[in-house]
Amino acid sequence: MGDTTANRDEEFREFVTTRWPRLVRTAYLLCGEQHTAEDLVQSALVRVYVAWRRVRAADEPDAYVRRVLVNEHARRHRRKLKELLTLSPGDTDGWQTPDRDRITLADDREMLRHALAQLPPRQRQAVVLRYWEDLSESQVAVAMGCSVGTVKSQAAKGLAKLRAALAREDVTAGHGEVR
């Protein structure tokens, strides 16, 4: 039995080692903060480890892990929202986002990340999974636990908001014209 556990642990360790960078990038795009992304991936992998026998037997273990990651992100977002709603009006200091320094907005990637962080969670999930992870609409639907139509709708709305946010950022950063 010990050998089976050791083999399973080694399989999981190899899985995590090869997938870690991509999972962290995906989590970063979902939440917008490096340390939070790493925590999010770790929490998701704890859940995956507990169910590793089922995960490795699945047709697409990566899809399973992405689903757990998206669910963990949604769970955390709901928790934060609940905490925010229970705060008194004058007690929101921890929830204020500092104004971004215009110098950091010079890089297009930073502008995109900033615009992405402004999207509602479901739209951000649809855009990240569809266009960053390059998943099909049906794969995104499975990861998000919704219909393909919802994925199309959320992705379209998210892209429209991204375009508008990037156009505003481009004009306010002094570039003059919208790209």
Results as ranks from 00 to 15, higher is better:
M1N: 00
M1A: 08
G2I: 00
D3N: 08
T5M: 13
T5L: 14
D9A: 14
D9T: 13
D9H: 10
E10K: 10
R13L: 07
R13G: 08
E14C: 08
F15G: 00
V16G: 04
T17W: 09
T17F: 15
T18N: 09
T18Y: 12
T18F: 08
R19P: 01
P21S: 10
P21T: 05
P21N: 11
P21K: 05
R22Q: 14
R22M: 09
L23G: 05
L23H: 06
V24I: 02
V24N: 01
R25S: 09
T26D: 03
A27Q: 00
Y28Q: 05
Y28K: 02
L29S: 06
L30I: 00
L30C: 01
C31P: 02
C31L: 06
C31S: 02
G32K: 00
E33K: 11
Q34A: 11
Q34K: 15
Q34E: 13
H35C: 07
H35K: 12
E38L: 04
E38D: 07
E38T: 07
V41R: 03
Q42A: 01
S43V: 03
V46W: 08
R47E: 10
R47S: 11
R47A: 10
V48D: 05
V50F: 10
W52I: 04
W52N: 00
A57D: 11
A57G: 08
A57C: 06
A58I: 05
A58N: 05
A58T: 02
P61R: 02
A63L: 14
R66T: 04
L69W: 01
V70D: 00
N71S: 09
E72I: 07
H73V: 01
H73A: 10
R75H: 10
R76I: 03
H77D: 10
R78C: 04
R78W: 09
R79D: 10
K80H: 11
E83A: 10
L84N: 10
L84G: 14
L85D: 04
L87R: 15
S88Q: 15
S88A: 15
S88H: 15
G90H: 11
T92H: 12
D93Q: 15
D93N: 13
G94S: 12
R100H: 07
R100D: 12
R102F: 14
L105N: 01
D107G: 02
D107N: 01
D108I: 08
D108V: 07
R109M: 09
M111S: 13
A117S: 15
A117T: 06
Q118N: 14
P121Y: 09
P121D: 12
R124Y: 02
R124D: 01
Q125F: 03
V127R: 01
V128I: 07
L129E: 01
L135G: 05
S136I: 06
E137P: 00
S138W: 10
S138G: 06
V140C: 04
V140N: 00
C146T: 15
S147W: 04
G149H: 13
G149R: 11
V151N: 12
S153I: 08
Q154P: 00
Q154C: 13
Q154I: 03
Q154G: 05
A155D: 06
A155K: 00
A155M: 05
A155R: 05
A156G: 02
A156R: 03
L159N: 06
L159R: 07
A160V: 10
A160W: 04
K161D: 13
L162G: 04
L162S: 01
A164R: 08
A167Y: 06
E169I: 14
D170N: 12
V171E: 07
A173M: 07
A173V: 05
G174L: 02
E177S: 09
R179G: 13
